[in-house]
């Protein structure tokens, strides 16, 4: 157990962090270079004001027509994204582990709060799963990878919840929790989850096109 724990909480953390960080930088730079080579006009058309205007509208709940048309989805999507980032970053247990390893720490949320956020993430994933199966227009677009990605996102939260509440087999779950978190982190730059990196750019670019050239809203 010691060796497994040491491995997943030691070198594996580094491996996943490096894949995540280097992956993000690589994806970003390679895309920027490809754009420079193939679509150099993208740089000319980027308009910071209109890009930020568009990003702001789409990061505001109910800030776009489509969000108002799908209120349930909007609420779930926003709570999901807020929780999926806040809960792990500001979880007390994570803060302690990081303090122990790197002697840095920051603000943390209460465990009750973390519990609620974790349940929100899990419930959102269930919602996304059901929506994917039930709604024909989503089902039509769905491939196996969509389910795999959804499972990858849900896994660290389910196992984390399990471990925290010390349900049966929580030691093994703890190990799986750490591993699944690392897998998720490493997968971000190379899957559809890369929208984390590219959202501001794709949104900003279309905001620039709509705003600066076409003088129209895009929300």
């Amino acid at each position: 157990m010691h060796d497994i724990y040491d491995f997943v909480s030691g070198p594996m953390v580094w491996v996943s962090l490096i894949i995540f960080a280097a992956g993000c930088i690589y994806r970003f730079i390679s895309m920027a270079l490809l754009a420079k080579e193939k679509d150099p006009f993208l740089y000319n058309y980027m308009s910071p004001y209109h890009a930020l205007r568009s990003i702001f509208h789409w990061l505001t709940p109910f800030g776009s027509e489509n969000m108002r048309k799908n209120p349930v989805f909007t609420i779930v999507a926003f709570s999901f994204h807020i929780c999926v980032v806040i809960a792990p970053l500001f979880l007390f247990a994570h803060i302690i582990l990081i303090k122990q390893s790197w002697n840095v720490s920051w603000w943390f949320i209460s465990d009750t709060m973390a519990d609620i956020m974790t349940l929100i993430v899990i419930a959102s994933c269930v919602f996304f799963l059901i929506r994917r199966i039930v709604r024909p227009e989503v089902k039509f677009l769905t491939s196996a990878s969509d389910y795999i990605i959804l499972a990858m996102v849900a896994a660290p939260f389910i196992t984390g919840f399990w471990t925290y509440h010390q349900f049966a087999g929580c030691r093994i779950m703890g190990i799986i929790h750490i591993l699944s978190g690392e897998i998720l982190l490493a997968a971000i730059p190379f899957t559809r989850l890369s929208h984390m990196i590219f959202f501001p750019i794709s949104r900003g670019y279309i905001g620039s096109e709509f705003g600066a050239i076409r003088h129209a809203k895009d929300w």
Binding site: M1, H2, D3, Y5, D6, A93, T163, Y164, Q166, C170, R171, G174
Partner: peptide, 13 residues
Amino acid sequence: HEQEKAGPLMCSE
């Protein structure tokens, strides 16, 4: 515990 490779390590332990 880590140094000695003995004793509990995980939160719940």
